[in-house]
Design a protein around this nucleic acid. Sequence first.
DNA 1: AACTATTGATACCTAATAAGTATGGAATTG
DNA 2: CAATTCCATACTTATTAGGTATCAATAGTT
Lengths: 294, 294
Amino acid sequence: MELRHLLYFKTVAEELHFRNAALKLFISQPPLSRQIKELEDELGVLLFTRKNKRVSLTDAGAYFKVEVDAIFARLEESKSIVQQIHKSESGELKIGYISSVYQSHLADVLIAMRDVFPHIKTNLFEIPTLTQIKALEQGNLDVGILRAPVHSDQLTVQTLFFDPFIVVIPASGLTFNTQAELAAYLKNSPFIFFNKDFAPSYNDKLIEICGRMGFKPTIVHEANNVHSILQLIEAGLGVSILPYSLKRQYGNLKVSYIELENIPVNTEVVLAYKPTNKSAALRWFIENYLSELE
Amino acid sequence: MELRHLLYFKTVAEELHFRNAALKLFISQPPLSRQIKELEDELGVLLFTRKNKRVSLTDAGAYFKVEVDAIFARLEESKSIVQQIHKSESGELKIGYISSVYQSHLADVLIAMRDVFPHIKTNLFEIPTLTQIKALEQGNLDVGILRAPVHSDQLTVQTLFFDPFIVVIPASGLTFNTQAELAAYLKNSPFIFFNKDFAPSYNDKLIEICGRMGFKPTIVHEANNVHSILQLIEAGLGVSILPYSLKRQYGNLKVSYIELENIPVNTEVVLAYKPTNKSAALRWFIENYLSELE
DNA sequence: AACTATTGATACCTAATAAGTATGGAATTG
DNA sequence: CAATTCCATACTTATTAGGTATCAATAGTT
């Protein structure tokens, strides 16, 4: 017995007419007649009565029809599900992240992920917040690590952490006894800022911090990622205000990190993704990225 | 995809070794390798990983294994059930009955049965009680309609009805004013009896009835069925005492039926069958033969 | 009532495919 | 390091599915 036999039987049972069933199956009528007879011989059971050129199901045949229908239904569903399992475990996960993300942590999560999803290919895109939002909306990213706020009703947003700011200046050996001295120094220093087109809210916060310190920053340079900003500071081109978490990640650079006091302005780092994206790998990633932050 | 593919897959999944699976399937290893590859190609899903001469199931493969097991289990069960349906509906039902059974009723039940079990072949055997008991015990009859008592622990017995007796004499126009006149007449008449070897208990009852009427019967003829007995009475060869139910069945014969008074002797008609006989047709017959008597 | 058309079954033939053998490349085992 | 074993692939053979022709029986049409 093969599935072919069951399919032929099922079709004859539906048509109750060998010739019509053969047409439906794209074979001619004699092989269909033979295959049904083979099935009946193998079972030792008459599934159809043929009388006066009319075909009808026996009681055994009627029962078998119901069972065969159920078997085909379950087989089709199984095929579909194995295909889904395969697809979610052997596809691609496109991850966007902002340049200030602590990549060591991201790497740890991805390393752990290879054990669970050995066939998943991860693509990492270091791109700014607004660009990520668009890409997520267009389905060109599966998940993004970016800064709030995320103005999009298509995306689900989950808080990762709150990141305060620190001042970063060239490693000059300078020290400041008071925050006022620091402010005076910064007022006379050239500033290197993020390109506000990429993260307008982030820029607004920097302006607010400077305002709270009592000066207006002189923005001389703009860059679109923190590596460039830090390298420019290290080279002595200017100063900046950056998220605190970068201190840990870039601890070895020849720059000075100066913590601020009494300025409760910070930035919220979030995960964003489309809730309609049902990828198993994505779900795993979100769950594990979040829990490794605890 | 055919059942062959699923069986090959299932076996490889169990063995996690192509060569061992091939041995189990009585084929050589290369065709097994190809058939698995064909299955994976058709599904578009990798079911096994082959690494370092080791075979393991992918997640999709592990899921599919469970599904394929369930599909095979259901198919095997379905095959078994269709075989049972076929067997119970297209076999044979061997029915024994005593000659005094009201055949019109039996015929009615069998006619109704053809609608429910159109492929059942019924074989009717008009045979005496003791012969029926032996045949039932030996499995040569499926069911018997016979007279109690049925001394057999292999058989289940169910009461059909209680049948009193009546006197049957040739249609002579004779009438009797009292039961004593009848008794005097019978005392001087030749008796036609059942062969007591076939139904000893039945014979004993007849002897008892005659005793209660005050005479001993002169048994001149013996026969082994009521048709013969009745024909002999009609022909004037003698008289007999028979079950009351025969009056309805043989109402047109040229004989006289004379009911007896104050003689509470009757015969019990029963169904008997082996409880181990699970035939659906038998079950239907018993149920319907009983209920049509109500 | 006679004739024609249609049905499912069977015989014979051809095309397609399953399975066999030989062998390769890679890894394991002794 | 050599021998053995594993699964995959190439080529060949055996088996089987499906095709065509046709039969016997019945239904439908005239």
